[in-house]
């Protein structure tokens, strides 16, 4: 593709919104501080000036009302992109997501579509404590009817957001806080990335490491270090949790015979456990070692940097897990 530049994850998301809003007048943006402020992390910067207050709506702190309004507007023919700053806040408006948006099409016999995109930030590592540091994508993946998108690079962020806006289903779009400043090559023109297509970040033959969002970067760091120790790691980024590219993971595990899943979500009943179960079901005969998960222990995220560091997954912990499975 032509016109490729190095831009940040934030700029990539911003460009996706801008281009889709230009292309399709039914795309609107709503959320707290998305207008004048341009989004608390800058993702909606400039959109109010460009498209005006009818299409870029600053909402009061009434999440049930505006997330729910996103659902209703989607049912009535718009393509809303609704932002709620932190995934931790969804407790206040969850019904509109997990009983309304997620289930309407099914309950109504497939007669309607809900082309809604809900954007939010996830992740720890910035001492934001128990109510601003969670990941929680597993909760949304657990509910039938929601697509779950977890980009790890500026390129994926733009392509997946454009795909999300054009997709006719309710989607949760998760942006890791530590990724906003990350730079990478992104084509100027609009492009899409099909959901459910994994990206092999590093090719390898000894161990398969599956990771999403910010953890992809820690996994790649770990793979590079392990290479110097003579261990060849294949890093796979599924990019979307729902739908999930099982084939890519199975293919890799059949080659390597070993699996480590890295997941910043809580250990109990989370994404990593599900991937481990899928592989245990389908690839048992190919496994040469027990499957390992590198996750966040099921404790609230503590404030103190010392405590937070103790619990969050990182390259060091991934290296340890990989060494255990190749032993």
């Amino acid at each position: 593709m032509s016109g490729v530049r190095e831009i940040t994850f934030v700029e990539a998301l911003n460009e996706a919104l801008l281009q889709e809003m230009e292309r399709d007048p039914t795309v609107i943006v709503m959320g707290e501080d998305v207008g004048v402020y341009g989004g608390i992390f800058g993702v909606t910067k400039g959109l109010l000036d460009r498209f005006g207050p009818d299409r870029v709506v600053d909402t009061p702190i009434s999440e049930t009302a505006f997330i729910g309004a996103g659902v209703g507007a989607a049912a009535a023919g718009l393509r809303p992109v609704v932002e709620l700053m932190f995934v931790d806040f969804f407790g206040v408006c969850m019904d509109q997501i997990y009983n309304q948006a997620a289930k309407m099409r099914y309950m109504f016999g497939g007669k309607i579509k809900i082309p809604l995109t809900v954007r939010t930030t996830i992740g720890g590592g910035v001492s934001a404590a128990a109510q601003h540091s969670q990941v929680l994508y597993s909760i949304f993946a657990h509910v039938p009817g929601l697509k779950v998108i977890v980009p790890s690079t500026p390129y994926d962020a733009k392509g997946l957001l454009i795909s999300a806006i054009r997709d006719d289903n309710p989607k949760m779009f998760f942006e890791h806080k530590l990724l906003y400043g990350v730079k990478g090559p992104v084509p100027k023109e609009p492009y899409t990335i099909p959901f459910g297509t994994a990206d092999v970040k590093v090719e390898g033959s000894d161990v398969t490491v599956v990771a999403v969002a910010y953890m992809v970067h820690e996994a790649v760091k770990a793979a590079n270090e392990l290479k110097m120790n003579g261990i060849s790691v294949e890093v796979i980024d599924p990019r979307t949790i729902v739908p999930f590219d099982k084939d890519a993971v199975f293919k890799s595990v059949k080659k390597t015979g070993r699996l480590v899943v890295v997941d910043e979500d809580y250990e109990r009943c989370g994404f990593a456990s599900w991937v481990a179960a899928l592989v245990a079901d389908e690839c048992f005969a190919y496994l040469d070692a027990p499957i390992k998960r590198v996750t966040t222990p099921t404790v609230p995220i503590p404030f103190s940097p010392v405590l937070e560091k103790e619990i969050l997954p990182n390259a060091e912990k991934i290296i340890k897990a990989v060494k255990e499975v190749v032993k």
Binding site: A130, P300, F303, L307
Partner: peptide
């Protein structure tokens, strides 16, 4: 709060 909460808690 023994360092577990921080300013917001």
């Amino acid at each position: 709060c023994r360092g577990k909460g921080g300013s917001m808690h």
